[in-house]
């Protein structure tokens, strides 16, 4: 087994007091989602790795704790597990057109961990079923436009790109 070295840097925010967990990169490597502790509530933050700074998320306030963020190729879609009342739900925020898609799993199970396909057309969800972890695969092609390598499709040309 050979060794392999890479060039390491800290993610933006790591040098501050803020701790960061559950990292998720966009497919193009331009954005990073992390879970930070915000006044005791695990909250997702989205960082722009190329321009620096934080990117706004519109639909997640008041629905903490957040967990298991996942991004599509250009970071148009952010999927994350949220809390609504006493239920854990998957929420996908479309940063291009500002829409939110709260999803209850057809199986009726609670989501534990997510992974969004790079093009945003499929979602893998870890759930618990009779004491066993399982992975369910969901087709999102009836819900989301693809977010593919090489650019974004604009649902509404008047809106700014993420």
């Amino acid at each position: 087994m050979a060794g392999c070295s890479g060039r390491t840097q800290r993610a933006p925010g790591s040098l501050l007091a803020e701790q960061q967990q559950e990292p998720a990169l966009s497919g193009d490597g331009s954005k990073l989602a992390v879970i930070v502790d915000q006044r005791g509530r695990p909250t997702v933050q989205l960082k722009d790795l190329r321009g620096g700074g934080r990117l706004q998320l519109r639909h997640l306030n008041g629905q903490q704790p957040h967990s298991s963020p996942s991004l599509s190729w250009n970071g148009r879609y952010l999927a994350v597990i949220i809390q609504r009342g006493n239920r854990r739900l998957v929420l996908i925020e479309d940063r291009l057109n500002g829409r939110a898609h709260p999803l209850r799993l057809p199986s009726g199970r609670y989501p534990v961990r997510l992974s969004l396909a790079p093009d945003g057309r499929q979602l893998a969800v870890q759930t618990a079923d009779r004491g066993r972890w399982q992975v369910e695969l969901l087709d999102l092609s009836g819900l989301l436009e693809p977010d593919r390598r090489g650019g974004l499709r604009r649902s509404n040309p008047a809106e700014p790109q993420p």
């Binding site: 890479g6 390491t8 800290r10 960061q20 990292p23 990073l32 992390v34």
Partner: peptide
């Protein structure tokens, strides 16, 4: 907890 970014060859 920190998050490191590693560029790989």
């Amino acid at each position: 907890w920190d998050v490191d970014l590693i560029r790989l060859p």
